[in-house]
Design a protein around this nucleic acid. Structure first.
Length: 344
DNA sequence: AACACGTGGGA
DNA sequence: TTCCCAAGTGT
């Protein structure tokens, strides 16, 4: 075992985090946690994980649930294709693998939502296999300790990093090794202001020696997400409001929302016309609500809800009248949920 | 290879 | 306010 690995594992025994999915015998729990943790903070995931395991305790329970129920539990977590993929994969595991996640790496990789990282995580943590993995934390730790100057998100950089991860992997302890790397990255080897003075591998770290910690890993410049303003209509009739279901693919796939459309100029001026065009409803503006603007930091939308009077009924199958008190049953993105809550 | 895909928190 | 990030995957 390399000095690097030895120090890392020793640190992990004392400093590893206690998390709800660790120590679970069940590979399903590991699987669920890994999917939820993709691009998502641990603190955000914990309550969702607890709820999820209570509501869907087994692969079978998940497979037999409706997509509506699944998306409802995922609401607020973001990246909703993860929920749809997890649901779909559960059905495959029931039908093709007798309800047990396959130990075969290729079979695992073919399940929707399970990529190279998740295969390594599940194989090592749930099955005790000697498999490396590479996530944002591990990438950062390795790029610093071994001074990888190649862009970490390039083909060449990834190859180098996967090889480093594999090279230092201790036989029989891959699960602890992978989790140790992730914990070190999450608690000590931080993207900004890393805590080098308390790092167990400081004395081995090339980036620290050169004083270039924050210059590793090298990343390709990323494009920023555009910001659009949408107008949303709260259309009431007989104590119900009109909801629209988004297409199952793409942004907020499968989620419900208030009929809305993008606006360009002055929202107040374009509202009725825009909504009318978007929903093919004949609507008449009746009473303006307080204008609310929600700005996302990544994908961005702003909404301007208003009440309006329905003139004619559309035949769109994705539209549904829902009692205000039952809006909670319909999975929505955060903006629409915020509007829904304002309706009381 | 480059992009789309959510959200909440911190600087 | 604006920007960047945080346990990736699918196309």
């Amino acid at each position: 075992m390399s000095r690097f690995t030895s120090r890392l594992l020793n640190w992990y025994r004392q400093n590893g985090r206690t998390l709800p999915w660790r120590g679970h015998r069940d590979s399903y729990a590991v699987w669920v946690s890994e999917i939820m943790l993709q691009q998502t903070r641990v603190e955000t995931v914990i309550p969702y994980f607890e709820k999820w395991i209570k509501r869907f305790p087994t692969v079978k329970a998940l497979a037999q649930s409706s997509e509506q129920d699944v998306l409802n539990l995922w609401e607020g977590l973001g990246y909703y294709s993860r929920a749809r993929n997890l649901h779909q994969a559960a059905k495959i595991v029931i039908e093709q693998y007798n309800g047990e996640l396959p130990h075969d790496l290729d079979a695992l990789r073919e399940l929707p939502g399970i990529g190279r990282y998740t295969v390594g995580a599940i194989a090592s943590m749930a099955f005790g296999m000697d498999e490396p993995t590479l996530d944002g934390n591990i990438r950062r730790v390795l790029a610093r300790v071994f001074d990888v100057s190649e862009p970490a998100d390039s083909r060449a950089g990834e190859k180098i990093l996967w090889e480093l991860a594999a090279k230092h992997l201790p036989k029989g302890e891959a699960g602890n090794y992978n989790q140790a790397l992730m914990d070190l990255g999450a608690t000590t080897c931080l993207p900004k202001n890393p805590h080098c003075l308390i790092c167990p591998v400081m004395c081995l770290c090339k980036a620290h020696e050169l004083g270039i910690q924050e210059k590793r890993p090298v990343m390709k410049p990323k494009k920023k997400t555009p910001h659009y303003i949408h107008a949303a209509a709260v259309i009431e009739k007989n104590g119900r409001v009109l909801l629209a279901k988004r297409p199952s693919k793409g942004l907020l796939g499968g989620m419900w929302e208030f009929p809305n459309a993008r606006v360009n100029g002055d929202p107040a001026k374009e509202l009725a016309k825009t909504i009318q065009t978007a929903t093919r409803l004949k609507v008449r503006r009746k009473e303006a609500l307080e204008i609310v603007e929600h700005a996302y930091s990544h994908f961005s939308v702003a909404t301007h809800p208003f009440r309006c009077e329905l003139v004619s009924m559309p035949e769109n199958q994705n539209l549904k009248w829902v009692r205000v008190g039952e809006l909670e049953d319909y999975p929505m993105g955060r903006i629409d949920r915020q509007i829904a809550r304002q309706l009381n």
